[in-house]
């Protein structure tokens, strides 16, 4: 399965809905999307990962890169994820301390800090 990406705006937040598999082959597409959004001035991103079937360390690297980019503009990058097998990867790498992870897009939109 390939990677699907779509974006929408909710208030001052930009939601990136990701579906499919994020791995060494597809992660560059997600990186391009995040870089493009930041270059266009979208600094408050929500990455909705509810449709993600697989995530590896390359994908984690892209998300960390995205976080660095938005932080350079005092922005934010929040994740939406309820899937245990995806959350496990964030836990074993210690990245649950780095990313705010929410159970719904609504919750992520409402979050301020």
């Amino acid at each position: 399965m390939d990677l699907s990406l779509s974006t929408r705006t909710v208030g001052d937040r930009t939601v990136v809905e990701v579906g499919g598999e994020i791995d060494v082959y597809t992660a560059p597409k997600l990186r391009e999307q995040l870089v493009e959004l930041v270059n266009e001035g979208h600094y408050h991103l929500i990455v909705d990962m509810e449709g993600v079937d697989f995530l590896d360390s390359t994908g984690l690297g892209v998300l960390v890169g995205g976080l660095k980019r938005v932080r350079a503009h005092e922005g934010s990058l929040r994740l939406v994820c309820n899937q245990e097998r995806i959350l496990k990867i964030f836990r074993i790498t210690g990245l649950t301390k780095v990313f705010p992870i929410h159970s719904s897009v609504d919750e992520a939109v409402a979050a301020t800090d």
Binding site: D56, S57, T58, L60, G61, I89, I92, T93
Partner: peptide
């Protein structure tokens, strides 16, 4: 540098799993 960091993260994931 970035590639090496990704390789290190990959090994970290394998070690954790």
């Amino acid at each position: 540098g970035e590639d090496a960091a990704e390789a290190a993260m990959g090994l970290a994931v394998i070690s954790g799993l």
